[in-house]
Structure formats: C-alpha cells, structure tokens
Design a binder for these strands. Sequence first.
DNA 1: CTGTTAGCGCTTTCAA
DNA 2: TTGAAAGCGCTAACAG
Lengths: 353, 353
Amino acid sequence: MAVGNDGSRRGGVRQVAAAAGVSMSTVSNVLNRPDVVAAETRQRVEDAMSAVGFVRNGAARQLRGAPSSVVGCIVLDSSNIFFAEVVRGMEDKLAQANCLLVTCSTDVQPQRELHYLRMLDEQGVRGVIVSPVIGKLDGLVSLSRHGVPVVLLDRRRGKTELCAVTVDNVRGGRLAVQHLLELGHQRIAMVTVSTEVESLADRAKGARLAIRDAGLAPDDVLLTIRMPGPAAPDRYADAVDHLLALTPRPTAALCFNDTAAVGVLRELRRRGIAVPTEMSVMGYDDVHFASELSPALTTVRQPRYQLGWAAAELLLAESDARHRHQELLFQPDLVVRASTCPPRRPGRRPASS
Amino acid sequence: MAVGNDGSRRGGVRQVAAAAGVSMSTVSNVLNRPDVVAAETRQRVEDAMSAVGFVRNGAARQLRGAPSSVVGCIVLDSSNIFFAEVVRGMEDKLAQANCLLVTCSTDVQPQRELHYLRMLDEQGVRGVIVSPVIGKLDGLVSLSRHGVPVVLLDRRRGKTELCAVTVDNVRGGRLAVQHLLELGHQRIAMVTVSTEVESLADRAKGARLAIRDAGLAPDDVLLTIRMPGPAAPDRYADAVDHLLALTPRPTAALCFNDTAAVGVLRELRRRGIAVPTEMSVMGYDDVHFASELSPALTTVRQPRYQLGWAAAELLLAESDARHRHQELLFQPDLVVRASTCPPRRPGRRPASS
DNA sequence: CTGTTAGCGCTTTCAA
DNA sequence: TTGAAAGCGCTAACAG
C-alpha cells in the first residue's frame, strides 16, 4: 500500500477517468487546477487515482510543455567531500521546489563536460549548475540562450549574462600564502590539479599577489606541481616525489583542497618527512575532518553546503518572470592550525658562509 | 560552436529533415539505425543536424517507449564521504551505458524515501538503486513489479526477487567487537544513527555475536547511543555527552561510520578525554583520511566505489532479456590503527578491593 | 533505401 | 463546471 496499488498494471489519466466515471480532462484538472473541480468530484477522482495506482507521467507532461523537474549539475568530482557537500546543498534546495538533481563528474576533462552537457540538454532539464573545466563560456552561454538556465559554480560570470556563485579565490590564495610568508617560507609549492580551471587559477593569482606584496618575486618563491585528475591512482605519490625532488626543496606545500592535503600528508609520512617541521602543509576547504588530522590542518575555509544551496536558489529563480542574472560572492577564511610552522632553515638557501 | 549552433532556435527532426531534403523517418533512422541509411545521405543528415542545432528530445523518445537514460539512487546522505564514493562508482558505470544518475538523500527519514521514490517513478527512470530506511520492502517490490528495476544497496534482498549489493555487516560488527574484546574492553558503546536500518542493525547483531562467542553477556557489554540524522547540528556533542554520562563509563566507542568517528574524536578532545588511553574509538568504512587522523583510526574497511559500480552494473543488467535477480556480497576487513588500545582499568569495574 | 501515417500520455483550448 | 478533440516531438510500421 506504500506506493500505490500492487500487482495490477498502473493506469493513466484515462483509466482514472474511467474508474471515477468522469472525463480525462476532469482528472487533469484535479491534477493541475484542483480548485476548479467540485470537492466531491475531486475526492472521487483522487480515490480512483490510488485505486488504479496512478503515477503521473513526467515525459508526457514535459512534452506538453510542463517545466522539467530535474536539474543537472556538473562538477569536477562529486566524490570529493567538498563537492559532495555542495551538491547536497543543491539537492536540499531543489527538493523544496520538488526537483531532482542529476550529478555529473568531469574529472577535469573538457570532453566529459561536453558530453554531460549534451545529455542534460537532451533530457530537457530545468537548468544546469556547472563548475566548468572548459575555459570558454560560449557553450554555456549558447545553452542559456536556448532556454536552459545556467548557473556557474566557482566560476566568475565575466562578461556573460549568466548567473554565478563563487568564492573569492584570489583572496583565498592570498590568505594562504600570506600566512606562509609570515612564517618565513620562501619556497612554496602549489599542488594543484589544473592551472586552467578558474577557481584554481585564481588562487595561484592570489598567491602571486601576496608574494609581490611582500616585495618578493613570485617566480622565485612559487612552484607549481600539477597532478593528474581524480581518477589517477598514484597521483599523490607522484606529486610528493616531484615536490621533494625540487631544488632547493620547498619548505611548504599548498594543496588545492583538503583531500589532496591528506594525500600529501600520507605520502610525506611514508617518506619520513615530518610535518610541519620539515615541511609545512596547507589544505583548502576546511572540511570537517581537517581539525582532526595529524597534524591538524591549516587551511582556508570556504562554504560548501551554502554554496550549493545558493546556486540552486539562483537556478530556480530563473524560472520566474523577469529575473536579473546575478553573481554571488562568498568570502574564504584562513584557519591556522598545526600543519604549518616556520621553516627549519630561514633565509633563501641553507646558510653556507 | 561547442554545443551546436548559436543564436537561432533549435529545431527538431522535422527541421533537420527539411534542411537535409529528406523525410523525417530518414532522420529517425540516422539516429536509431544508422546502418540502414546510405552513407552519403547519412552524412547529409548529420550536417543538417548540426546546422539546425538539433538536440534529441528525451521526453518524446521516452514517450514513444525508448528506455529512459536516467537512473535514480536513494541513499541516507550523499554528502557522507562513504556514500559520495559509492555514488561516484554508480555514476561512472552508468556513464558507460550513457545514463545519468539522480542522487537523493533521505537523512534516514522514511517519508523522504517515499517522496523520492514517487518522484523518480514519475520521471520514468530506468531503475532505482536504494539504500532503504524503510523496513518493509513491499513498496520496492511493487515498484519492481511495475517495471522499474530496483537494486538494493547495503540491504539484503531477503525473500524478495530484487537484486541486492551488500557488504557483510554482521561480519563487520563482529570483527570490530572482537578486536575490542581482545584488547580487554568490557563496556562498549555503539554510536549509531538508527537501529532499524538493516546494515546498521546487522552490525549490532555481529557485535552481540562476538560478545556471546567470548562467553560474555551482550547486554552487559554493549550500550547503544542513537544520534539524530545527518541534519542535526550538535549531534556529536550530544552523543558524546551521552556516552560520557553512562555508568560505568564505556571504555570504547564504536561509531557507525568514519565521519561520525571524526565527530566523536573532536568532541572527546574538546572535553579533554585522551584517545585511545581514556577512550578507544573505532570507525567504520576506512575512508581515505582515516589513516591520517589523530590518532590514526582503527576501523572496518568496506568497498565503496566498487559497491556503487556493482549496483549500477546489476541495474543495467536488468534491461537485458532474461536476467536472474541476484545478490552480491562483499566482505569487510578490520583495519587496526592507533585509536584503540587496552582500557586503562582492566576488569568489569575499577578494582576496589 | 525513403516517405507517409498513427499515436505514446498528457494538457488545454473550446463548446456544452 | 465538465466532455470532446487536437497535438507536443518522436519512432515504428508500412507502402513506395
């Protein structure tokens, strides 16, 4: 009894109409404009619906022009705890509007982004929330023009007319590197997955700004270690090998997210490198477990659930009559814990005089 | 150019047919049975498709009887790292079959399960993968009878004809408690979110079996602390308060997942309770960061990505001609690390003689 | 190999 | 208020 009747095939409006002794359109009215139907008739129809085991056919409704009730989201990796929580925020906001969320992960591959975008378009989704890998926004702008609302996630709208929900990544990168500079680090490795994805590029930009502000030369201080995407198995081992092979060896590693920081912590531990005394490590996101790591992770906090919620909110708003596209900007915060400390040997090089 | 043409409205098969100078059905054939169309014609049609900016209309296809290309999954909490990875496994497997995944979280509320099930049914999804909160499987069985394939996740099929992918939770609970008993613990608190959800109930069952095997009385050894669902804010604080108030105080806390274990570790630390010396803590899942926690977490490993992948695989298989429903069982493993040790005061009570 | 036609289940005019 | 009829975009069944 939990989900309609059992056993018998489920019927459509036609069967319901027959069972209730009314016409199809009355049934439709009960569904879409209940107030227009006599209470008694309505009751009879509703009874018939559960008797017949009626389930609305979304495809048919959509074909007739009803707005779809599924929304798509495309992120870099839904299994990353950061995105997982962002997505959860979306899901909950969408649930309020009786919408479902399709989750797609690109693993930072442009081709996968394209593929999912196409599939979502074919599904006729109500809209898409995208954290793009692809640099050019043309495809998304075009999609939007064709009537599929697009909300950018962690990507500024630039000159486009799209909605966007972002966190100030330039500021985040700056905060992180300021902290490391203040501790005395002069060789800092940024461990990232892409130098093209805007949010990540912005953090690098902020990092350089911080270095410049300190009167140093960004290229002398900042190194970039680029890892392969989430799918690669030994990505952290390779990244740490790379990190340790740099000369002079960096004294701090700034990871592009906390999950990566965990990977780096693990590989450093395996190699017997003490954190933070031999190597400071920073994360990014401040996920729940960051404070319980060994050592507790210094990181940059950014909102997650709230970010997804806001993105979904904007997306839903686009259905409304006249709606101005807008950009929302959240602010990150530096969270200092135990995984960073002054470098062992101060100065640019080991003092040799 | 990335996603079809720009600016102009997108056309359907009709427009494509016109543009290519062929009939609608030829276009349809190019789409569905390419081999039946002359190569030259096909090319012309394909050109027309991109010229017109053709995007297949999924709703119409579905209405005509094509199998849907979206699958639903309902889990307890998609933002929990365990489920996030399970879901990612599903997503990747489904992508191979050109399917999309809708993710739904119940937060352990039966009513939300019902709601999502209904919505997915209305969407006409290809099938659903469900980690149910609801005890009775009737609703799912009925859904399955009505032609919507159902795969149970982390739930045994019992006497039903459903497919299921599970991990041996009785074994998992047993392994965990055996370990604690061997260390000498005689008061063990299980921190859980539900005593009804089968996977969690099974672990409790395994725990009791382990105690019985050791010649002890389960009710003397095992306490249950039930937390509210994922949405509640101070759940861990409250749970730990509860834990510490028990008399005699348990010497070990067995948490129902690693995320919960992190919460418990944090709250214990806040209260100045040393882990493991004053309180042993175990998790469940062995997520990536478990080994980097402070202290490194003793836990029970279970597959995640693989679990989701397998579930999606079974679901897709149901589309095939004659397919036997089957149950897949994975095995968990005990992973001993640093968050457990012998209790400070051996014996049932503080020795007082 | 290509063109014509009917209809999936629903909503929505319109007339009663 | 309710009932009859048309058609959303696509596909499958035929006839050419």
